[in-house]
């Protein structure tokens, strides 16, 4: 079943992606098909199965907290669309 327009509006807001009305309608129907296909997972009993988030055994990989050389400020700013050395200009986030 296709997602509703309200659901699509909410998801677009959460993901911070502008979508046209046409994109929302098309995607709502495609996601409905995909989610319906996923209902098949409920055929499997997983009550006592632990979740797997990743497959390697490592946990909490630590290293010495040592000073190492990193990128220069020029390098870091080199790809910013609105760099004004030594800053990146952005719009206000607080009124």
């Amino acid at each position: 079943m296709a997602l509703t327009r309200a659901e699509m509006d909410h998801l677009a807001l959460l993901a911070r992606i502008g979508l046209t009305d046409e994109e929302k309608d098309r995607m709502a129907s495609q996601l409905g098909d995909i989610l319906q296909h996923m209902e098949r997972l409920n055929q499997l009993s997983t009550e006592h199965i632990p979740p797997t988030a990743q497959v390697i055994e490592a946990t909490n990989v630590l290293r010495e907290d040592e000073v190492r050389s990193g990128l220069t400020r020029e390098q870091v700013l080199s790809n910013a669309p609105r760099a004004e050395d030594p800053f990146i200009r952005v719009l206000p986030i607080l009124e």
């Binding site: 997602l3 659901e7 993901a15 911070r16 995607m27 495609q30 996601l31 989610l35």
Partner: peptide, 23 residues
């Protein structure tokens, strides 16, 4: 700006997966 940048910058499949993942 975020909305407009991501609307114009990403293609249909990437948008679909971001929305699906968000869902």
């Amino acid at each position: 700006e975020y909305n407009a940048t991501r609307e114009a910058g990403f293609g249909a499949e990437v948008k679909r997966r971001i929305i699906l993942g968000t869902y």
